[in-house]
Design a protein around this nucleic acid. Structure first.
Length: 285
DNA sequence: CGCAGGCCCTGGTAGC
DNA sequence: TGCTACCAGGGCCTGC
């Protein structure tokens, strides 16, 4: 499940292999994967072939490759739940869920978009001030140098909802998904169902600090490969899953207090927390 | 307008 | 063994 650290690892890999090479062919094997691209596969192909990519940018879980010739356009990539960008030798066997193949006019590696659950995709978009218009509503992420902790904390406290919901709201703070939300909440000793407005500014800024810290650590270890769907552009897993303190640790002892980590349903998914360190806001015990 | 919840999608796995 | 039901979940869309 790629969140910010995993997407950043992929971005770096793409930068290493895919920039400043003339695009030769674009082969869309599965139209759904380019469903957000205006004009579909034909226009995607005609716009990309002959052009080349600049260095990749990222905001939250989105990354994009600006084009060199058409300098107000970019190829946006979102990995969804199971998307992978692989830089493969041209002779390598096709992956089972290969969706889009981009070849360059040299003998080096080709770029492949592979996606089992097809929530991800790639599409052409227009750049405004260097940002694709379709992601203008995505907030800056905590690793962005221009991320404003105090302003984000204010925005969070203005919301009339629960804290974990806001952490997952990409228009307030981006890059955080279910795994790093649970990890940040564990580190901050906050229950995800705590209402946001009574939280102090200090608590929220502390939480954002923890989110940044845990994602930075994950990035240093190549990301979290919890269910093997996430890999870097060379197909290699990250190692942060063994450093997780909450996510996926149901029944295992809290690394702080020893209480068994609890798993609960939340927003049609799972939340993991320590029942002792992260007390329930409703029925404290 | 803000918020909550449903839906999309597929493969692995638990359970019978 | 083979079938069914369920689970993973980001982001868009709808409805209240």
């Amino acid at each position: 499940m790629p969140e910010l650290p995993e997407v950043e690892v992929v971005r770096r890999g793409i930068d290493r292999w895919a920039t400043n090479r003339t695009i030769a062919t674009v082969d869309v094997r599965y139209p759904r994967s380019v469903r957000r691209s205006p004009g579909g596969a034909p226009r995607l192909r005609s716009q990309l072939v002959g052009d080349s990519f600049r260095c990749a940018s990222r905001r939250g879980k989105y990354l994009w490759l600006p084009l060199v010739d058409n300098d107000d356009a970019a190829l946006v990539v979102h990995l969804g739940m199971s998307g992978q960008v692989l830089m493969q030798p041209q002779r390598a066997d096709d992956e089972k869920h290969l969706r889009v193949r981009i070849r360059f006019d040299d003998d080096e590696r080709e770029m492949r978009f592979v996606d089992q659950r097809t929530f991800g995709g790639m599409y052409l978009d227009e750049l405004h001030d260097g940002v694709p218009v379709t992601i203008a509503h995505i907030a800056r992420d905590p690793l962005d140098p221009k991320f404003d902790d105090a302003a984000t904390a204010r925005a969070i406290r203005r919301k009339d909802t629960e804290i974990k919901r806001v952490l997952l709201d990409q228009s307030v703070v981006s890059g955080i998904g279910n795994i790093y939300a649970d990890e940040a909440l564990w580190r901050a000793r906050l229950h995800g169902r705590r209402p946001t407005s009574p939280l102090t500014s200090r608590q929220v800024i502390d939480l954002l600090d923890h989110a940044r810290d845990v994602m930075t650590s994950a990035l240093d270890q190549g990301g979290t490969s919890f269910d093997s769907l996430y890999v870097n552009v060379n197909g290699e897993s990250g190692y942060f899953d063994r450093s997780l303190d909450a996510y996926g640790r149901e029944g295992e002892p809290c690394r702080r207090c020893g209480a068994p980590i609890r798993r609960e349903a939340f927003m049609n998914r799972s939340s993991y927390r320590c029942p002792r360190c992260q007390r329930s806001p409703r029925a404290p015990r």
